[in-house]
């Protein structure tokens, strides 16, 4: 089985891209399955099942950090995919914060970037973009050719070794090249003993345990405060 982790900010088009690519893989005779990680609710597993007829499950992180929940369930996701006899398993992340990257050493990594997120988005995206193998650039039809080229340049500067695939999430244009590349990936489906490409943030404070009140006296554990003298406190 080939396992593929698909990351990217909310509404960048992760699900749309997976649907188009999965359709091409299905047409080529592959068995495809999908796991969607989300926070509170998700319609995507039903969407995968109803539009492609493929096995799909979802996991909701609920009160846990979505990225911690995701990585804690990596083996379970892969075991489920294998139990369904999948040739290719798409693992779609909730894509929330840009502090870390859900990508794992040795497993193919895809990050979806929205052309509308601005020309400086590649600099702001951090490890999710810098540590990926394949970048999918969506919504390119909504910006000018020049803006597309400038964003692609920014992506290349942030991650010179990633291949960039422009894909139109509505029409599927561009999914051909992407699915061709995915078909060539090696079969890798073991996550145990592998490492995350980037560390995840510590998250042990009173708010982690359900605290909702505001004020220093309610805060304990890992608490960092704004430092007005730090160089990032004010715009240069």
């Amino acid at each position: 089985m080939k396992a593929l982790i698909v990351a990217g900010p909310p509404s960048a088009g992760k699900t749309a891209v997976i649907l188009h690519v999965a359709r091409r893989l299905l047409a080529a005779g592959d068995k495809v399955a999908a796991v969607k990680f989300d926070t509170r609710s998700s319609l995507d597993p039903e969407l995968y099942a109803s539009s492609l007829g493929i096995p799909a499950i979802g996991g909701l992180s609920d009160y846990l950090c979505p990225d911690h929940y995701f990585i804690s369930n990596m083996e379970e996701a892969l075991e489920w995919g294998k139990s369904r006899g999948a040739d290719c398993l798409f693992i779609e992340t909730a894509g929330l914060c840009l502090r870390c990257a859900p990508h794992i050493e040795g497993l193919p990594a895809v990050t979806v970037v929205d052309s509308l997120s601005g020309l400086h988005a590649p600099q702001k995206m951090g490890p999710m973009l810098a540590l990926t193998d394949i970048v999918v650039l969506t919504k390119g039809d909504l910006v000018s050719q020049a803006e597309r080229e400038v964003i692609s340049f920014g992506i290349h500067a942030a991650n010179p070794r990633a291949r960039i695939h422009p894909v139109n999430g509505l029409l599927g244009t561009g999914s051909l090249g992407l699915s061709g590349e995915l078909r060539q990936l090696p079969e890798l489906d073991e996550a145990a003993e592998r490492k995350l490409r980037h560390d995840m943030p510590a998250a042990i404070c009173s708010y982690c345990t359900g605290e909702r009140r505001i004020g220093r006296r309610y805060q304990s554990g890992n608490v960092e405060k704004l430092r007005p003298e730090s160089p990032h406190a004010e715009p240069a």
Partner: peptide
């Protein structure tokens, strides 16, 4: 392949000179 956008607006907030210089520099 370049495609001419069906849109007639830019997402970038800049002057024509900054836009052209940024595009040229990126290439």
């Amino acid at each position: 392949v370049a495609t001419l956008s069906q849109r007639t607006n830019f997402i970038m907030d800049a002057r024509v000179e900054e836009f052209a210089a940024l595009h040229a520099a990126s290439l």
